[in-house]
Write a protein that binds this DNA or RNA. Structure first.
Lengths: 200, 200
DNA sequence: TTATTTACGTACCGATTGGTACAAATAAAG
DNA sequence: CTTTATTTGTACCAATCGGTACGTAAATAA
């Protein structure tokens, strides 16, 4: 009974672990690309029958959506933690840049970024979750920038909304570059230099 | 006889126009995404039989490769023309940014960028062409930057190689944003400001 | 006319897709 | 033990995928 002991249950005990399947699905989508991985292949990799997956997730959209939620909970949350930490503004920028450009976990890129770039091919629920994660991420960037501006740790000569959009886009670019095998370190540093330099 | 009158031909005259099919394929890949469009659907849209397409292009890889080449010849070339023009450096940057961020032709984004981000799912020949277009584009950026530096129209306080990589990446980001329905104008302007500002 | 060459349309191939019907298996509840 | 509830495994479904075999239409060459 690998699943939660929520109910002693009446029927045959489940052999499948929802968590295991989510791990397998998340990594498969993450590594090979969301549209390149079939539901069938996930069943094979997780050694689980298809009806079990449908019983647990309802549809392919349900599985991809759950896998993306899993990713948000266990991977993206680390970036949000940095953004919500009470560090100095330049340090937060530095730590976020390092996480995106250097951390070994994002060698394959970012599942969210990959799903977003193919969102038109994703299911309905997954598209909704993508939009939700997008606004959540952008809000977190905006908060950091607003605080940095209030504390005088950032010149703030750029509207907070635009700067947040910019930061979000540059981090996404770095993660996209890593997915392609590039090292985004220098390009990202160059992009983020607009927060350290002043106008002429 | 829609095809070139290269040879009076002996057998039955071709009904299919290679150029027409390439136009249809290019726009289909461009609009819906390269991996979202099947060879079958292209045959339907172009009102051409599958054996004709195979006769002309050999395989799906041959078709996608030819479509990307078509795109390079008729769309990407406009960017290269700007880069190779003998304009002043700031003007060239401005014109390139406008082409990527404002031009109506790139409302669907950029086929090259889309194929590159799904290159692992593309055929062998297509992957090779992607790499070729990539280095061609980066070389063009490097040339412009080197000339701008030589003419004193750009501070050049950044290595030309890195600056070219950066420009290439930012233009790609803008085109990716447009494909997602965003307006990249402000973000791109912010990214390119590193060429106009000086260090503190 | 006859033979040859070429491209066409149809109809098919095996593989794979997302999704499901159904019965055996296995537990608790009566 | 019987009933009921639940999950499993197998085996299937129609649709679509990339790719092809094959006979026919339509042109020139002889």
């Amino acid at each position: 009974m690998p699943e939660a002991p929520s109910k002693p249950g009446r029927g045959r005990p489940p052999k499948m672990s929802k968590e295991d399947v989510l791990d397998v699905a998340m990594n498969a989508y993450w590594e090979d690309g969301p549209t390149a991985v079939s539901l069938n292949s996930i069943c094979q990799r997780a050694v689980v029958s298809k009806p079990s997956v449908y019983n647990a997730f309802g549809s392919e959209d349900g599985l991809t959506c759950a896998a993306l939620e899993h990713y948000g909970q266990f991977v993206m949350v680390k970036m949000l933690e940095i953004l919500h930490s009470k560090d100095r503004f330049p340090n937060i920028i530095k730590r976020v840049a390092h996480l995106a450009a250097q951390d070994a976990q994002h060698q394959k890129g970012c599942l969210f970024v990959k799903m977003r770039s193919e969102k038109s091919q994703m299911g309905e629920k997954t598209q909704t979750l993508i939009a939700h994660l997008e606004s959540m991420s952008r809000d977190a960037f905006a908060t950091v920038l607003a605080e940095g501006k209030a504390n005088g740790e950032w010149a703030g000569n750029i509207p907070v909304e635009l700067a947040a959009h910019y930061l979000h886009a540059q981090i996404g670019l770095a993660l996209d570059q890593r997915a392609r095998g590039e090292d985004p370190t220098e390009v990202l540093a160059m992009a983020l230099s607009v927060f350290e330099f002043t106008e002429t």
